[in-house]
Amino acid sequence: MDQSPLRSEDMMLDEQMLSLLPDDGAPVLNRMVRLSLSRTVERRVTQQEYFKIRDQLIADGKIGRARGPGGQVYLIQDPDDPPHPLISQTLPITEADLMPFLENYLETAFQTGLDLPSGSHFILEDTSQRGPRRGQWARPDFILVTLLRYRFQPQKQLDLHAFELKTENGCNVQAVHEALAQTRFTHYGHLVWHLPENSPHTVRLEDIRAQCISHGVGLILMREPGDPESYEILVDARRKNTPLAIVDGFLEARLTDENQKRLARLLGV
């Protein structure tokens, strides 16, 4: 840390920096603060200048430092106030924590959204622990089978969906490719991302969304895990023409015996 005293211009910059930080104590990326500072004072603020001022403000107890890629700072108000919710102080939410919420969503709001014709059927299976241990990207967290009955078609149509669940900080472009890889065995692939409103991880959303569009992978944002109405389908999945034999083999390997019997009964086989 540079401990040399602040010059008068630095003093002006530190006041500007304090005025830029949100009053509610929300953390802001260092590079965002430096950029905003440069825009405010109409000249380039160098990294060296910025960190000198930032470190002095931390030492003075006026701002705090939060974790995150690139580092974040926030305005300290009353030390007795609880930290801003965006400053992660608690243990991160795991995929296992989110699974029951996703299951509930798929059985309620998602199923309603499919608008299945009457006489259709819906089978949901938690497959996160099923399937080969060695197969890469071959174990979706959930699979969903729909059997559609049309008015003038003699046969039923079977559609198989795969869902890959990712935590707030566990989702990246590779997760899209993971969901895509699962469509080797299914008709639809969906990526479900726990992304609360105002999450700092929103920075990755545009890239992930673009990749989903490009590969035909569905993207579902889980805003409030416990509230199915808060989920947003940002990208609709495109149907793949996966060969029947592969879909059949996948269902045999992933569905429980009970669900296999139920499916066979519904198909009349």
Partner: peptide
């Protein structure tokens, strides 16, 4: 499709997705 989005001044403290040139214009 993303060019009209890139033209909007939407970088804020909480939405920094288009802060970099490459992320903006892709």
């Amino acid at each position: 499709v993303h060019v009209p989005e890139a033209m909007s001044q939407s970088v804020t403290f909480t939405n920094t997705g288009r802060m970099s040139y490459n992320a903006k214009w892709r």
